[in-house]
Design a protein around this nucleic acid. Structure first.
Lengths: 143, 143
DNA sequence: TATTGTTATACTCTATAACTATA
DNA sequence: TATAGTTATAGAGTATAACAATA
């Protein structure tokens, strides 16, 4: 049933699936005019609404120097703001603006919708297994 | 047990896990001096050893115009070659050269090693569930 | 007419290293 | 001395549109 490919590698499959979801998300959110990295950053701000650059950097898996450009563009569009950190004057708190919060909410809705569509009909135990592996991969020390 | 984060979103978790494996793979293969996209392309050539540009494009999830640059660099380093397609004179067959084949084999070994390390100790049923979801995500029509 | 792949263009992402300002 | 973040730099990925050759 799987045509000719065994979809043998978990790593390659992971790559492909991630690519797929990024594309799908981008398409669902074209009207926002955001890149994948920008969507990712906003999605990661959506919950607690604020992070230092270093925290966000760890969350999205990019160097802080990379984040600088992404945040510049988001800030220019008034979706985030860089606030002085209350206790560390070297650091910034990246916070969602009001329109940024709306965008982040919409991103979350799109993510949730996508997940429902992708995972509909799969048994709960299968999903649990999936999350378990996902956590193992994200958490494990790969060295 | 999962600290504070429920790792709530499958999509975001997928992103993070994919990022993780790309990094880990890159580190395991630094001596090859290849980028993630180049590794991905070679990995996708590793099995049948040849693909048209369009096929490879679908496999790696990039536009053919993107692939042009990647293939240019791989060809310049004598890792792949563009051969005339036997029956369609518009198309090219991307084939591994002999050193390219060695690189691809090494990439496969690295991928396999990584998978063993990441997935060691997880029950088989969990892994089966994981692959099922991965296939669903990669295959499903996301529109 | 439609398709294969390249070219041209314009941005975005990416990492590294050097730098400023704090700590 | 070490850390947070930016800047400078340079390369690589990305998509779109236009194009040539072929189907």
């Amino acid at each position: 049933m799987q045509s000719e490919s065994e979809q043998s590698s978990v790593v390659l499959g992971l790559q492909r699936a991630a690519h797929r979801t990024v594309h799908a998300l981008g398409e669902a959110l074209t009207h926002l005019g955001l890149t994948a990295a920008e969507i990712n950053a906003l999605a990661n701000l959506a919950d607690d609404r604020q992070r230092t650059v270093a925290e966000l950097s760890a969350a999205v898996g990019a160097k802080s120097s990379t984040l600088t450009g992404i945040l510049d563009r988001l800030e220019r569009r008034d979706l985030v703001r860089r606030q002085p950190h209350p206790t560390d004057r070297r650091a910034f708190l990246v916070v969602l603006t009001e329109p940024g919060g709306r965008a982040a909410d919409e991103i979350w809705r799109a993510i949730t919708d996508l997940e429902h569509r992708l995972l509909a009909g799969l048994p709960a135990t299968t999903l649990t297994g999936f999350r378990t592996v996902l956590n193992a991969v994200s958490t494990e020390d790969t060295r």
